[in-house]
Simulated assay, not measured.
Amino acid sequence: MKERMIAELATVRKDRGIGIDRTSALTPDKLDTARKLVVTGDKPAKVAKLKIGVETGTPL
């Protein structure tokens, strides 16, 4: 099983030039807004969950 997974990852890397990628939960506009809010003093988890609408996986 391990060998098969390694072979599959090698194929993906060869085809895409990278590993298995993950799409971003934030659009460029939301990312910009989040950065501005964090700079002004808001906590990153609070910004993500309450103001941007992204789940953090951790309770606030």
Score class of each variant (00 low, 15 high):
Met1Asn: 07
Lys2Arg: 15
Lys2Val: 10
Glu3His: 10
Glu3Cys: 06
Arg4Asp: 11
Ile6Cys: 01
Ala7Leu: 11
Ala7Asp: 08
Glu8Gly: 09
Glu8Met: 12
Glu8Val: 13
Leu9Cys: 08
Leu9Gln: 10
Leu9Glu: 07
Ala10Asp: 10
Ala10Ser: 09
Ala10Phe: 13
Ala10Val: 06
Ala10His: 06
Ala10Cys: 08
Thr11His: 07
Thr11Phe: 08
Thr11Ile: 12
Lys14Gly: 00
Lys14Ile: 08
Lys14Gln: 11
Lys14Ala: 10
Lys14Asp: 13
Asp15Thr: 07
Asp15Leu: 13
Arg16Pro: 00
Gly17Leu: 05
Gly17Tyr: 11
Gly17Trp: 13
Ile18Gly: 02
Ile18Ala: 06
Ile18Phe: 09
Ile18Trp: 08
Gly19Gln: 06
Ile20Asn: 10
Asp21Val: 15
Arg22Gln: 14
Thr23Gln: 10
Thr23Val: 15
Thr23Gly: 07
Ser24Val: 09
Ser24His: 10
Ala25Phe: 05
Leu26Val: 05
Leu26Pro: 08
Leu26Gly: 03
Thr27Arg: 02
Thr27Asn: 02
Pro28Phe: 11
Pro28Cys: 00
Pro28Ser: 06
Pro28Gln: 03
Pro28Thr: 07
Asp29Ser: 12
Asp29Tyr: 10
Asp29Ala: 11
Leu31Ile: 09
Leu31Asn: 13
Asp32Ala: 13
Thr33Asp: 00
Ala34Asn: 01
Ala34Asp: 00
Arg35Pro: 12
Leu37His: 03
Leu37Cys: 03
Leu37Ser: 01
Val38Phe: 00
Val38Arg: 01
Val38His: 01
Val39Pro: 01
Val39Trp: 12
Val39Ile: 14
Thr40Ile: 14
Thr40Cys: 05
Gly41Tyr: 01
Asp42Lys: 12
Lys43Arg: 12
Lys43Cys: 00
Lys43Met: 12
Pro44Met: 07
Pro44Asp: 04
Ala45Asp: 05
Ala45Arg: 08
Lys46Trp: 02
Val47Asn: 05
Ala48Gln: 04
Ala48Asp: 04
Lys49Thr: 10
Lys49His: 15
Lys49Asp: 07
Lys49Gln: 10
Leu50Glu: 15
Lys51Met: 12
Lys51Ala: 12
Lys51Thr: 09
Ile52Gly: 01
Ile52Thr: 00
Gly53Phe: 03
Gly53Ala: 04
Val54Trp: 07
Val54Gly: 04
Val54Arg: 08
Glu55Cys: 03
Glu55Gly: 15
Glu55Ile: 12
Thr56Ile: 07
Thr56Pro: 01
Thr56Ser: 04
Thr56Cys: 02
Thr56Arg: 06
Thr56Gln: 02
Gly57Asp: 00
Thr58Gln: 08
Pro59Ala: 00
Pro59Glu: 14
Pro59Phe: 11
Leu60Ala: 11
Leu60Trp: 05
